[in-house]
Design a protein around this nucleic acid. Structure first.
Lengths: 144, 144
DNA sequence: GTGGCTGCAAATGGTTTGCACGACC
DNA sequence: GGTCGTGCAAACCATTTGCAGCCAC
């Protein structure tokens, strides 16, 4: 997904709800898109203040827009253990997370067998499955 | 696991670390043991104030002991989405969670196929697996 | 008796909210 | 021009911490 796609999706989402397309929304989304790592609200705010000294974005705006972007499905959040919520661009490819407990590295993966097994479980308990999260915690190769 | 086992485990954990066995620790652990549902800190505190009007337990003590009990492995915590941490007795039987998004009901389950598949994934990414959480979100039979 | 434990209240810190001003459509 | 969005600061709320007295060992 290119940056143009990402901004395009934002424009569509905004138009659909008769909301405004603002520089701040674009900047926040761009920051998440450009980051290799998952970011929390404060990290996003810090990146914005550093790279945009003249055009500042308030922390409240960051929080408001993270909620907005998540609700519209443009970004995804993941909250590990008792830590802060971290955000990533929604590539519309579902995946789960493998987390290193030493360095905090997050690796994304997808396993079809597990996805299928989950459906079986849900059926067994008569649940209608909407979503799921799976986090594997361990120590990555570098940190062992 | 009987209540005697639970209290026995607490006595052992406390003795091992040369700490004190207090009424409050026992009460908090008992509350979690007696509850069918997962409880958060505030719910535990409320239950204690209702059932023990004379012998009151401060909210700070609840938090301090929840951390203590979790660290010693007597209880487990699960934090759903962006909500509060909820606690349950550690039965030493690993399980995952199926959560109803309407009524909040939590069902525990265990699936050996998924456990195995997780090991495969960890190996593939050269992670040493320590633990994992899996939460399936959906709508339970009653709420559909 | 001593060191951990408790209750209380104050502090903390991430997140939310009220409000007046500014910007998008 | 009207409405939504923003920045700022204050409020919020779950959790943590400092401290003086208390209690288990």
């Amino acid at each position: 997904m290119t940056k143009q796609d990402v901004f395009g999706n934002l424009k569509i989402a905004v138009k659909e709800k008769a909301l405004k397309y603002t520089k701040q929304r674009e900047l926040i989304l761009e920051t998440i898109y450009n980051s290799k790592n998952h970011l929390n609200a404060e990290q996003i705010h810090k990146k914005l203040t550093i790279s945009n000294k003249d055009d500042k974005v308030g922390i409240a705006t960051v929080y408001r827009n993270l909620l907005f972007l998540e609700k519209t499905g443009l970004i995804l959040s993941i909250s590990l253990n008792n830590n802060l919520k971290q955000y990533e661009i929604n590539q519309h490819k579902h995946h789960d997370h493998l987390v290193c407990m030493r360095c905090g590295k997050i690796v994304e993966f997808i396993n079809q067998n597990i996805e299928q097994e989950q459906e079986t479980i849900a059926k067994e308990f008569k649940f209608k499955l909407l979503s799921h999260t799976m986090h594997l915690y361990g120590v990555c190769e570098n940190c062992q």
